[in-house]
C-alpha cells in the first residue's frame, strides 16, 4: 500500500538547515496497523505529513497504492488527499461552527456528492463511531473523546485507502484514549490500513507493528503481538 525509498526532508531555519528525515526506507502492506514511535524531534510527525501529502519531501520516492506521489500541484494533491487519505489529528481539527454531522460530511462535499447523499453517508459513519445521537451537536458541546470519534468518522467518510492518525490520543485521558484506540482497532479489523504516530508505548502496543524513529532514521521495525482492547 505504501512504499517509501530513501526519503529526505530538511527544514530551512534561517541560515542553517535542519535535516529531519535522513533516508527513510519503509513500506506498509494492505490492512496493517502501524505505530510510528519516537521522541519529539525524531521526525515522526514530519514523516506522517509527507505520507499525508500535507508536506513535500526533498529527496526520495513515495508510492501510494502504486501511484507515484511526487511534485504534485496543490490541486492534484488535494484530490489525492480527498480520495486516498483520511486524517485524524491530535487537536481534532473539527470546524467549530459545523455540527458533528456537517463535519463528517465535509470531505464528501469536496468529492462533489449531493447534500442529501452526504448526510446519509455521514450519519452512517457517525453511527459507526457510536455518535448517531450527537449528530446535531457542535464540537464545543462534545467531550474530547467524542470530538476525536467525530474526527475519525470524518476521516473514514470518504472511504480512504489509508488512515493517518497523528497522536490521536495526545489530548485525551487514558480512559477515552482506550475508547479511541478500540475504535481504531475495530476499523483496522475491518480491513483499513492505519498509521498511528504516537510517543506512548502502551498506545503503540495496541498496534500490530511498531516502527521506531530516532534522529531522522528508522532504528527499529518490528511486528508485535497486538494488545487488543476489550470491554470499553
Amino acid at each position: 500500500m505504501i512504499e517509501i525509498k530513501n526519503l529526505h526532508k530538511s527544514y530551512e531555519m534561517g541560515s542553517s538547515s535542519l535535516h529531519v528525515l535522513k533516508g527513510i526506507d519503509f513500506s506498509v502492506a494492505d490492512g496493517e496497523l502501524v505505530a510510528i514511535m519516537g521522541s519529539s524531534g525524531s521526525g515522526k510527525s514530519t514523516l506522517l505529513n509527507i505520507l499525508g501529502m500535507l508536506d513535500n519531501s526533498d529527496q526520495g520516492t513515495y508510492d501510494l497504492d502504486k501511484i507515484r506521489i511526487a511534485n504534485m500541484d496543490e490541486k492534484k494533491a488535494a484530490n489525492y488527499r480527498n480520495k486516498f487519505l483520511g486524517f485524524v489529528f491530535q487537536s481534532f481539527n473539527l470546524i467549530n461552527y459545523k455540527n458533528a454531522l456537517e463535519n463528517v460530511a465535509l470531505p464528501l462535499y469536496y468529492q462533489g456528492i449531493s447534500r442529501k447523499e452526504r448526510q446519509v453517508i455521514a450519519l452512517n459513519y457517525l453511527g459507526k463511531v457510536g455518535l448517531k445521537d450527537w449528530s446535531s451537536h457542535l464540537p464545543s458541546e462534545l467531550s474530547g473523546g467524542q470530538k476525536q470519534r467525530v474526527a475519525i468518522a470524518r476521516a473514514l467518510a470518504s472511504n480512504p485507502k489509508v488512515l493517518l492518525a497523528d497522536e490521536p490520543t495526545g489530548a485525551l485521558d487514558s480512559k477515552t484514549s482506550m475508547e479511541v484506540m478500540a475504535l481504531i482497532q475495530k476499523i483496522n479489523n475491518e480491513g483499513k490500513t492505519i498509521l498511528v504516530v504516537t510517543h506512548e508505548q502502551d498506545i503503540a502496543e495496541m498496534c500490530k507493528r511498531i516502527v521506531l524513529l530516532k534522529d531522522g532514521v528508522i532504528v527499529e521495525d518490528k511486528k508485535v503481538k497486538q494488545n487488543i482492547i476489550k470491554n470499553v
Binding site: G52, E74, K75, A78, R81, N82, F87, Q111, R154
Partner: peptide, 16 residues
C-alpha cells in the same frame, strides 16, 4: 486560516 487548512487536508482544492 485553520479552518482553511482543515478544508485543504480534507481535499479542498486551492481554487475552491
Amino acid at each position: 486560516t485553520k479552518e482553511l487548512g482543515i478544508r485543504k487536508a480534507l481535499g479542498a482544492e486551492p481554487n475552491e
